[in-house]
């Protein structure tokens, strides 16, 4: 079997040599060798599974949870049910608040790093990245230890005499937001840092020379020029925030359902793979729309700069 496939790989490029087509294509073998591994990887583990998900999303659920191979669009129509639309809406709101909070907290932070002396910059960036070395599930459990009724924060506050009764910090929407913001914060800071660092300082000096107050210069110069960073940071936070099902499960006590939990349940408890697949496809389409908007903004932005 192995022999067959290697043989196929070895012989196929020769068979489809350009001579056959009679046109002047000359295959760049260097390019072929360098991009093959990545492309094969992507096709095998991304494109094929995606096609499978798309295929299953148009099938029906078997009585015992299997897949019945009859075509239906019912799975997509079911999503239009107010119940599921509402869950989608909740997810979007949660992800939106997370993104906004990350932006408000992350912008000054990224600005600080980008404007600090060069020798500190690496260390500061390093500190942002270090938590990534630990599994995010483990970090979420650390938050639980901090926030729970007899946890570190409550015990400390009681010890200091600031509160008499422990605060309910865990198992509510606030806790879910803390978890999401904490987990996704670096995804906001890194692209923001990238675009703030590239910002030409002389433009700000020019603005100030022309009589702009610092806040005017910020609004009219800094903000528009760092817009690509803001948008890509927001996307990098918003999209994963829709799908991080384990944070509502662990920190929200599984009381808040976001679209990620709904999809998980279709595969694990409802045994409804077709509906789960359809929900995944809907989520992917939403993501693609957002990325398309990003590309528009990024291009518009570039044109804008050229106009200047």
């Amino acid at each position: 079997m192995k022999d067959q496939s290697t043989a196929a790989v070895m012989s196929n490029p020769n068979q489809s040599e350009p001579k056959k087509t009679g046109k002047k294509f000359k295959i760049n073998t260097g390019l072929l060798w360098t991009i093959s591994p990545a492309t094969i990887w992507l096709v095998l583990f991304l494109v094929v599974p995606l096609i499978l998900v798309l295929f299953v999303s148009f099938m029906s659920r078997g009585t015992y949870g299997g897949i019945e191979y009859t075509f239906t669009i019912e799975n997509y129509l079911r999503f239009l049910d107010p119940l599921y639309l509402n869950i989608m809406w909740t997810s979007v709101v949660m992800a939106g608040i997370t993104t906004l909070a990350c932006l408000i907290l992350g912008y000054p932070f990224a600005y600080l790093i980008a404007r600090s002396p060069v020798q500190y910059r690496t260390i500061l960036l390093f500190l942002v990245i270090v938590p990534f070395w630990t599994n995010s599930l483990v970090r979420t459990y650390a938050w639980i230890v901090l926030l729970r009724t007899e946890g570190v924060i409550n015990n400390l506050l009681i010890y200091l005499g600031w509160i008499q009764e422990p605060l309910q910090l865990l198992y509510n929407d606030g806790a879910v937001l803390i978890g999401l913001i904490y987990t996704l914060f670096p995804f906001m800071v890194l692209p923001l840092y990238g675009s703030i660092e590239k910002l030409d300082k002389s433009l700000l000096e020019a603005a100030s020379d022309l009589g702009a107050k610092p806040w005017q210069a910020f609004l009219k110069v800094t903000l528009p020029l760092t817009m690509p960073g803001i948008v890509s940071g927001s996307l990098l936070v918003f999209i994963p925030a829709l799908g991080l099902f384990f944070i509502p499960d662990l920190m929200g006590g599984a009381k808040t359902m976001i679209i990620g939990n709904l999809i998980k349940n279709q595969f694990l408890t409802a045994r409804d793979w077709p509906f789960g697949s359809a929900l995944s496809i809907v989520l992917m389409i939403l993501t693609l729309i957002l990325i398309a908007i990003y590309v528009r903004i990024a291009e518009g932005d570039r044109r804008g700069i050229h106009d200047i």
Binding site: S5, N12, I27, I35, I40, V48
Partner: peptide
């Protein structure tokens, strides 16, 4: 063309 070729090859392997 190269990309297409690689895709076809990998599908073939699959």
């Amino acid at each position: 063309f190269s990309i297409l070729l690689v895709m076809v090859l990998s599908l073939g392997m699959l």
